[in-house]
């Protein structure tokens, strides 16, 4: 067969590269570089250099760790995370399982319990302030019940446990919804057949939940845990509204060092610390809570 010259032109040794997708992702790529990579590098730079000379220094970290609030901030941030996140996951799982039973009115219930997704930490703090403040609803109820004569002061520096409790409660109230929706979406990905198979083989509801549903929900639980834990390290407005600086937290300290003490360097040191915490906790979750192979 005679091969025409045009044939040879088309005899490309390799497929042509299609540039369209690269053009389409370019803006996102540039933007991510500018607003994620750059600030991250900048944060580390600010945290370890002297603002005047530009020389390497650990003085900002020393100032941070020597501060009165530093240890407290770490302790409170970790305590709040350790208390609030498990509660959020348990309550979120309970709600998701409830919705998944598809009882009459489950969609209204879903909407109602999802509402806090749209509520900021600031607004949530203000809402629960109206309950816990001295002339708040909690005292009003206690007084109506005849339990107290004069208003109890819950949000005071003398009662750090109450302060902590109020913050944790507010966090659970606000952020359970996100956990719930993530878990519900995960639940709905699990084919009904598995639960039905389990029940055919004689598993009760609890056994089915424990041995079939929860293991299959692993990846969603992992995601919920990571997202919630990272966001718990961000805790700022709720604490500021309910407790001011009486309960110092990492994000709050970053704010105060930036706004109050005008030290972007120490604030950056806090930012780096939060970054390290977020990174290592994500790594820990991925490392030690690895869901099994081939799951949805």
């Amino acid at each position: 067969m005679v091969v025409a010259e045009a044939d040879l032109v088309l005899d490309r040794p390799r497929p042509r590269v299609n540039w369209t997708p690269y053009v389409l992702v370019l803006p996102a790529f540039v933007f991510l570089g500018l607003f994620f990579i750059y600030p991250m590098v900048q944060a580390i730079w600010l945290a370890v250099t002297d603002p005047q000379s530009g020389a390497f220094t650990l003085s900002h970290f020393r100032r941070m760790s020597g501060d009165l609030y530093f240890r407290q901030a770490i302790r409170y941030t970790l305590t709040i995370t350790a208390l609030a996140v498990p509660l959020q996951v348990m309550l979120g799982l309970a709600i998701a399982l409830l919705v998944n039973t598809r009882f009459r009115g489950h969609s209204a219930f879903l909407y109602l319990t999802a509402v806090p997704i749209g509520i900021s930490d600031l607004a949530a703090g203000l809402i629960w302030l109206s309950i816990f403040t001295e002339r708040g609803y909690l005292n009003a109820v206690l007084q109506k019940l005849g339990l107290i004569e004069v208003p109890a002061i819950f949000l005071s520096v003398e009662r750090p446990d109450w302060l902590l409790g109020a913050v944790v409660l507010t966090e659970v109230w606000r952020a359970t919804a996100i956990v719930m929706v993530i878990l519900l979406a995960g639940l709905q990905l699990i084919p009904k057949d598995y639960a039905e198979t389990a029940s055919v083989f004689g598993a009760g509801r609890w056994q089915t939940l424990r041995h079939v549903i929860l293991p299959l929900l692993g990846p969603s639980l992992q995601t919920a845990l990571i997202i919630r834990t990272i966001l718990a390290f961000q805790l700022f407005a709720t604490v500021v509204i309910l407790a001011g600086r009486q309960i110092p937290v990492l994000a709050g300290e970053a704010y105060f060092w930036y706004s109050l003490y005008r030290s972007p360097n120490v604030a950056s040191a806090y930012a780096v610390l939060i970054l390290l915490f977020s990174g290592s906790i994500t790594w820990l979750y991925l490392r030690f809570l690895r869901p099994g192979e081939g799951r949805a």
């Binding site: 997708p21 600030p39 991250m40 944060a43 961000q234 700022f236 970053a254």
Partner: peptide
């Protein structure tokens, strides 16, 4: 396309650097 998975991963990873971490260095910039 080549790099598709890495881009997707990078976009998800950005969730790890939330407002607190970004704001302070960006304020300076």
């Amino acid at each position: 396309f080549r790099g598709r998975d890495s881009l997707q991963l990078a976009i998800l990873a950005t969730k790890m650097f939330p407002a607190t971490v970004l704001s302070i260095p960006l304020a300076v910039a």
